[in-house]
């Protein structure tokens, strides 16, 4: 069994999750505060990948980043980066595709914290960033963990988007979910089963770990 697709998948999910932790947390915090029409629109856009067929998203990303015109051409000529049929393209697509899984749970958890927690921190002279880091984030740990694992697991399971924007290039964009499809196409069911089983096991263990951790967390805070 060729393990390259598995490693590629894990690498993609890891990098995507890391990027989403860095940009998703401040974003979720921003969305959790106040209500404006602008924020609703932004939130709707972020949520779209949840309900949109992945092929639609992949198609538009393909158009946007095609090196022949527009944004893709500019990126190619100015920075010499290409997002179509490349690993960085997969990362970009995955970040967009998995964004609601990171931002959604974190945002709702932040909104459920009493407003007085931040207010108390401000009266103690702390900045918004200090408050976010020392008061808000530590008190949404279970949601944070759930969001991180879901983002990782969801990226593992990507198919439509990666196929559209990444193609199916062995060693570069051929992730495990595509390897399953290829094996079935080639009627190599044993190989398809190998890849599927690995994906299934990893995801199952991750989800179990979250449940166990969150159950333990809930217990300690109720005691």
């Amino acid at each position: 069994m060729d393990l390259t697709p598995i490693w590629l998948t894990l690498k993609l999910a890891g990098i995507t999750t890391l990027i989403l932790l860095v940009i998703g947390l401040p974003f979720a915090w921003w969305l959790s505060r106040g209500k404006s029409f602008f924020k609703i629109i932004i939130e709707a856009i972020i949520t779209m990948p949840l309900v949109l067929p992945p092929s639609v998203l992949g198609f538009y990303l393909l158009l946007a980043f095609s090196p022949k015109h527009g944004l893709g051409k500019w990126l190619q000529e100015t920075f010499d980066v290409q997002f179509v049929f490349s690993f960085q393209g997969l990362v970009l697509a995955s970040v967009i595709y998995s964004m609601p899984f990171m931002i959604g749970p974190v945002k709702s958890a932040l909104q459920q914290l009493p407003k007085a927690l931040s207010e108390a921190s401000y009266t103690l002279g702390k900045t918004e960033w200090q408050t976010f880091k020392s008061v808000l984030l530590p008190n949404i740990k279970p949601s944070l963990l759930t969001a991180t694992v879901l983002t990782f697991a969801h990226t593992l399971g990507e198919f439509g988007v990666v196929l559209m924007i990444g193609g199916n290039i062995p060693g570069i964009t051929r992730v495990a979910s595509l390897a399953v499809y290829d094996s079935v196409e080639a009627q190599d069911y044993a190989m398809a089963n190998n890849y599927s089983l690995v994906l299934f096991s990893i995801t199952f263990v991750l989800v179990i770990a979250v449940f166990v951790f969150n159950k333990y967390q809930a217990k300690t805070s109720l005691e």
Partner: peptide, 27 residues
Amino acid sequence: TQKRNTGFVFQQYALFPNMTVKQQLEY
């Protein structure tokens, strides 16, 4: 608020659940 140096006791206390008694004061 940060520059007013006012102490505020909230009706619902607004204690930080993640910090011990000492840590709340050290914060």
